[in-house]
């Protein structure tokens, strides 16, 4: 227990604070906080849907919850069910085998809802494109509010994408 406390204290707060030399993240963090407070009263919830991704985007979605980016610290949480979600964060080209599941997830999400398509595949179909097995971009299957490119998009880009989605939803 002593060692756990010692490490917690030694590591300190690693969430990148206001004067840290990462201006892109700083701007995003501040604006996110304000938008979230104003529009969603600090309770924005996200449901992630992997619709056929290679698992690269998922690694970065995990990263936005690490102490450096600390998305949850801004009041934005990932939830276990689309029925609890304000935002669907969709990755991958939509495989034909996930097409129906994605549609149903979208329908299960209460209105008003926002959809962020994540990664090159979500935006355009990426390297996988459209084929006998792939429907390509997310907007070929459900309406998309914001598309965040990148292979995979950085945690910062993901946060910026969520911010943009909130601005639309206002």
């Amino acid at each position: 227990m002593q060692e756990i406390l010692r490490l917690i204290i030694a590591k300190g707060l690693r969430t990148e604070p206001a004067p840290e030399p990462d201006p892109a993240l700083l701007a995003t963090t501040r604006r996110l906080g304000e938008e979230v407070r104003r529009c969603f009263n600090g309770a924005l919830t996200i449901r992630h849907v992997d619709a056929g991704s290679c698992n690269g985007c998922e690694l970065e979605i995990h990263a936005v919850n690490n102490p450096f980016y600390n998305l949850e610290g801004l009041g934005i949480r990932f939830v276990a069910s689309p029925r609890h979600a304000d935002v669907l964060l969709v990755t991958g080209p939509v495989s034909r085998h996930m097409e129906e599941a994605l549609r149903r997830t979208y329908e299960a999400t209460p209105d008003p809802k926002l959809v962020v398509a994540l990664g090159d595949c979500g935006c355009t179909g990426g390297v996988f494109g459209e084929s006998y097995a792939s429907c390509g971009r997310v907007s070929n299957v459900i309406p998309v509010d914001v598309a965040v490119p990148g292979c995979p998009p950085s945690p910062l880009a993901i946060m910026r994408g969520i911010l943009t989605a909130i601005a639309i939803g206002r």
Partner: peptide, 27 residues
Amino acid sequence: YTHKGVEKLLETCTLDSGARLAGRISG
């Protein structure tokens, strides 16, 4: 569920261009 035709797609690639796709089989 995530079957997206990778093997079929690879057959449209050259040995050179296939590398990018190979790097995205499992991110």
